[in-house]
Every structure is written in structure tokens, then in C-alpha cells.
Amino acid sequence: MRYFIWLTFLLALLWLGLSGVYKPLLFILGGASIALVVWLTERMEVLGAEHDPGALSWRLPVYWLWLIGQVVLANIAVAAAVINPRRIRPRMIEIDAPQHSRVGQVTYGNSITLTPGTVTTRLDGSQGRLQIHALLPEAISDLEAGEMERRVCWLEGPP
């Protein structure tokens, strides 16, 4: 039930933000759309542990801020490599994804892909292995140092 209240709230926020025209007719249409979407979601049974909008905790904004800082740093490194392409040392590596849930592993993989200079090419969920294509040696040593891994584990919280 908590899922549906959260979903209704987020959808209402989205409608109000996107419409910008506040008239009774549009409120009725919006309410009908939200009811339809919530009903469809319930019928499709997609709202479960992996799709819970209410699972967003206070840790998420903190993690995003840190991630944006990392993205900016990695961007500067890759931009320098574009200007001087002799610096690139492309390599394929494999690292562990020790997160205990699928959402955690996917978050880790997507964070790695979002950071320029590293792209996750394969995620083996059952063994918790990530295959990564990396552009620069600095990016590889950063990944192997495990800062991002610890942050994602922290974001995920205890099992």
C-alpha cells in the first residue's frame, strides 16, 4: 500500500510540474490519468522490491552529489586525453560487485558507465562480477581502490 501512495504522490508531482495550467478540467484529467496508471501498475505487478519509489532514502542525494563530483573529475581527465590521444591506454578489466541486491549491482554498474572513461560491458549478477572497458590507467586504479564500491554498499544499506 505504501508503494501506491508513493507512486500516486510522485505522479501527481510530475503532472503538476509538466502541465503548468491549473484549471479544474485539467485537475480532473490529471487525477484520472494517475488513477489509470496506478491501476495498470497494480495489474502488471511491476511494483515490487525492485521498483519501489518509496525505497529512495536520504542517502540517495548524498550519493548523487558525490557521483556528480566524480563525473566532473573523470570528464576533465578524458577531455585531456582527447586533446592528447597518446595518453589513452584502453584495457578490459574485471572487478567484483559485492553488493547483495540486484538493484545495488545495477547501480554500481551504471555509476561506472556514467563516469566517462569507464564503461561496464557485462554484469554477471550471480557471481557478482563486472567486466569493464577503461580508457585511462588512472580510472582503473581508482576503481580498484574501491571508493565507489564502498559508497554504493553504503547507499544500499544493510541487507
Partner: peptide
């Protein structure tokens, strides 16, 4: 400028994130 598809993905990542 980059030599292959994977390195080009990284360069595309700059334009897609920062």
C-alpha cells in the same frame, strides 16, 4: 579522433554527462 568504437563511447560520454 579516437581509434575504435569503445574509446569513442568514452568520448561520447563527455558530451552526454558534463
Amino acid at each position: 579522433r579516437f581509434p575504435d568504437i569503445f574509446t569513442r563511447l568514452h568520448a561520447g560520454g563527455i558530451t552526454d554527462t558534463l
